[in-house]
Design a protein around this nucleic acid. Sequence first.
DNA 1: TACACGTGGCG
DNA 2: TCGCCAAGTGT
Length: 341
Amino acid sequence: MPDTKPDFDIRAFRNALVEWFRREGKDYPWRRTTDPWHILVSELMLQQTTIPTVLGRYERWMRQFPTPGHLASVDEQTALRSWEGLGYYRRVRSLQAIAREIVHEFGGEFPDNPEGLKRLPGIGPYTSGALLSFAFNKAAPIVDANVARVLARIDNYSVPVDSTEGLKYLWTRAENLVDPEHAREFNSAIMELGQTYCRISAPDCLLCPVRSFCSAEQPEMLPVKNPKPEITRVEHHDVLYLRGKSILLARCPEGKRHAGMYRFPQREDDHTLSLPHVLKQTYSVTRYKVTRYIHHVTESPAFLEGEELVPLDKVHELPMASPDRKALNSPVLGKLLDHIR
DNA sequence: TACACGTGGCG
DNA sequence: TCGCCAAGTGT
């Protein structure tokens, strides 16, 4: 068992890590607060998203929605629009659902225990631990990709970290290691170690503050992960249809990708496909590599479910996924739109 | 359990 | 150009 490794001095490990963090830890906006609302926003933004991306968005979001009440009171479209470009839009729906629950059910107070937190949508074991430690300084474990890498290397652990067995091991190990006296600093430290010295490629073991605790023989080979699904190429054909000073857009249905967001209407009929395209885009979305053609349609198509004409001066208010926003802002479409404005 | 869910940066 | 990856969760 991980907690019974004979020559591993847990207290010394905690001290080395926390002291390193106090010396060299970075200063992020979300490390300057213990307000659970601020911590929650930062954690949801940071899920599968890089720190530079979040640094470019976090403070503006907090100015717009400084309390749960501010997000609870706007409509979903406004919330989605504010999240635009960050991806994984379910996160902002969860955030708004949580905000409304905090305001209307919990009198504005966050739960400070794992049972209460994990009942909230979008909060899993990682985010629960992050809130408990970063906001409430409680000795809750966290395991994210950084912690998994650090722990796998420290223990020279070669079971896939995304397997059931691997996850169980890592969470148990994280729970044993977390410093009960300095949970906030310890969890920040172990994550930051994974981003700096214990990085994925070319780890800098010579400068690592906990190198004397590490068993890794070939750190660059750890952690082991399960293989990823293959990439599938797909083609989409969409239409640009303008009438007066409006554009035809489709609202994505609930429960599907980009739910609640607006996109160019899709068509697969032979007539549409026979028209020359005004724009060709390629982009990746999860396991798909998409080639998307936008055809300029001049005769009114039959409107399908969820499609509506949107005045061009309102388009900027609607939430759109990045490829659609980029298409709309592209020079070639811009020229067409300017022509009728 | 395996897959869906976005995006941008980097080697 | 391409594959990999990031402070994961829901189903």
